[in-house]
Design a protein around this nucleic acid. Structure first.
Length: 564
RNA sequence: CGGGAUGUAGCGCAGUUUGGUAGCGCACUUCGUUCGGGACGAAGGGGCCGGAGGUUCGAAUCCUCUCAUCCCGACCA
């Protein structure tokens, strides 16, 4: 088998899974975020795929295979042709017709279903596929973990009702839990924002790893867990001793722009300063107001406003509306809508920018000095703060790799694409949809992140490319060759996927490569042990080895594997 | 898309400051000796120094442009 291992990691790799996949001869890079999968790597992907298939089939999923190249019209119909942005790789054919390389397949599956499924009697329906997707990521990185082209399982369900969708959603939760458990992963299911896919109910499956790109918050006491995009803050308790309202007063704060500078200059704690961040949105400029020691969570803010998009406003746009440079913006007499965190309107005297250069107000009171358009949780939560769900828990914040994401979409696609069914009363309704993704390559990479040591990969048995590797000490010695070949053949006949290292390299090379590619069981066959009828069996994970009778032990190997 | 860095043999790198026609380690080929944890010796093969243009008698080296890749940030199922 072609397994081009490397002693040194390529210079352009950063995370451990990327280094090890390249070193183990699983993948090679072709362009930024685009990888070829070599034989060993493919065997792992196929293992993950097979587990996914089994779990999808178990809950009634039917496998399909949809085109990777999709016509623009379909995307225009759903509205995403203009919404999706540069991440969508757009291409033209020879007739100058527009297409895209599919980043996901809601449009295509919905097109199939709207044409073929007409009656409530045909619902619910659940389809899935395992396909290569392309998303033209701004910055691909971390090897196969954040590639532009990647293998993904995507599933789509169609229902007559929200309740029905929720049933399938629950099935998916079970299936996904099985998938990631079977892949040997330590994962968490967390509440998530729906992002550009849309919908209103969503969970991510996240593998805890320091190299992960997602931050997640979870309770150290109950089962609450959420992506930091969404992690809820517990409603603030009103202060025990409300402060006597002080008059609004302007104070000079020359060149004090940051919360920290103002806090030090005026001798007030950051908690008593109002942080005013101006955002540009499709609904115009808005201000997000949080306590000085907090951070605005733009996604929560966007959801509170109910707008399509939002980003921090340019200095120029701020100046036009407020006559104040950044750092001196405040809510008092601010001519734009104010959205505030619940910590803001508590009865306290606050400090805020005076909307003019080098000045702040003290004694600011929400309600009296400015009015709030809408109050809601719009801040980032922090490590150690109280859990929003239970009374005892505290937030923990960790990084993780998103390996699965499930959504209830509602009618976001079925309505514009007119995927309708006739109900029992003969009335037309839009189907309720759900969609469910698993990053296949990312799951394999995540498994490496969680299962490796200084020598290389330590594959969990279910996704190991092979279960055993036969290492002849010297394949040129007839007795060793015969015993090795016999072991190899016997193991395959016993259903053990086995690799035979028949290279003429020195033993050390073979051992090191075997450790690197992480096959769970190493079977070492050498002339000395063979003379006394023994072979050596070593487990990769524990590095423990023992001598066993040859060939009798071969029959016991399937049993030994079960114990791993 | 902003900031930073790097492109020299299959891989990892030196050489660039101070211009003189390319080197080291690993890998590869051949021979010999080795052979239970990345062997040793000898002899070899392989690079128009990312690309284009310019300066110069002469450019891997200096200048301009360009492309690629990586890192940080912004963004993101």
């Amino acid at each position: 088998m072609f397994i081009p291992t490397l002693k040194e990691s390529p210079a352009d790799s950063e995370v451990i899974s990327h280094k090890l996949m390249v070193r183990a001869g699983m993948i090679r890079q072709l362009a930024a975020g685009i990888y070829s999968t070599l034989p060993l790597g493919l065997r792992v992907l196929r293992k993950v795929e097979q587990i996914v298939r089994e779990e999808m089939n178990r809950i009634g999923g039917q496998e399909v295979f949809m085109p990777s190249v999709q016509p623009a019209e379909l995307w225009m119909e759903s509205g995403r042709w203009s919404l999706y942005g540069k991440e969508l790789l757009r291409i033209r054919d020879r007739h100058d017709r527009e297409f895209c390389y599919g980043p996901t397949h809601e449009e295509v599956i919905t097109d199939i279903v709207r044409k073929e499924i007409k009656s409530y009697r045909q619902l619910p329906a659940l389809f899935y596929q395992i396909q290569t997707k392309f998303r033209d990521e701004v910055r691909p990185r971390f090897g196969i973990m954040r590639g532009r082209e990647f293998m993904m399982k995507d599933a789509y369900s169609f229902h007559v009702s929200e309740d029905s969708a929720r049933e399938t959603y629950q099935d998916m939760i079970d299936a996904y839990s099985n998938i990631f458990r079977r892949c040997g992963l330590d994962f968490k299911m967390v509440e998530a924002d729906t992002g550009t896919i849309g919908g209103h109910h969503s969970h991510e499956f996240v593998v805890l790893a320091d190299s992960g790109e997602d931050a997640i918050g979870f309770c150290d006491s109950c089962d609450y867990a959420s992506n930091m995009e969404k992690a809820a803050a517990r409603a603030p308790a009103p202060p025990a001793n409300p402060e006597e309202p002080a008059p609004l007063k302007e104070v000079s704060t020359p060149n004090k722009k940051t919360v920290e500078e103002v806090s030090r200059f005026l001798g007030v704690s950051p908690q008593k300063i109002l942080k005013t961040i101006v955002f540009e949105t499709d609904a115009g400029l808005v201000a997000g107001l949080v306590r000085g020691d907090r951070q605005v969570n733009p996604i929560k803010l966007k959801n509170l406003i109910g707008c399509e998009w939002l980003h921090p406003a340019e200095e120029k746009a701020i100046a036009e509306k407020t006559q104040a440079p950044r750092g001196f913006v405040g809510p008092v007499k601010l001519p734009i809508k104010i959205y505030a965190d619940p910590e803001v309107p508590l009865p306290r005297n606050m400090v805020a920018g005076a909307n003019k250069m080098d000045a702040h107000y003290t004694g600011v009171q929400a309600g009296r000095d400015f009015s709030i358009e809408k109050t809601g949780d719009i801040r980032m939560v922090e490590e150690g703060e109280p859990c929003p769900k239970c009374d005892r828990g505290r937030y923990k914040i960790r990084r993780g790799i998103e390996v699965g994401h499930i959504f209830i979409l509602g009618t976001k696609y079925s309505a514009p694409l007119k995927a309708q069914y006739l109900d029992a009363q003969g009335k037309e309704n839009a189907m309720v949809m759900g969609c469910y993704g698993v990053g296949v390559g990312r799951t394999a990479a995540a498994a490496i992140e969680q299962n490796h040591d200084e020598k290389g990969i330590v594959w969990p048995l279910p996704i190991a490319p092979f279960q055993a590797v036969v290492i002849p000490v010297n394949y040129a010695v007839d007795a060793v060759k015969d015993a090795s070949d016999k072991t190899y053949d016997t193991l395959w006949s016993l259903g053990v996927e086995t690799l035979l290292d028949d290279r003429s390299d020195r033993l050390g090379v073979k051992f090191n490569d075997a450790d690197l590619i992480g096959i769970p069981l190493q079977i070492v066959i050498g002339p000395k042990n063979l003379e006394s009828g023994k072979i050596e069996i070593k487990t990769r994970k524990t590095n423990q080895s023992g001598l066993h009778d040859f060939p009798d032990v071969l029959q016991k190997i399937p049993e030994m594997l079960k114990g791993l």
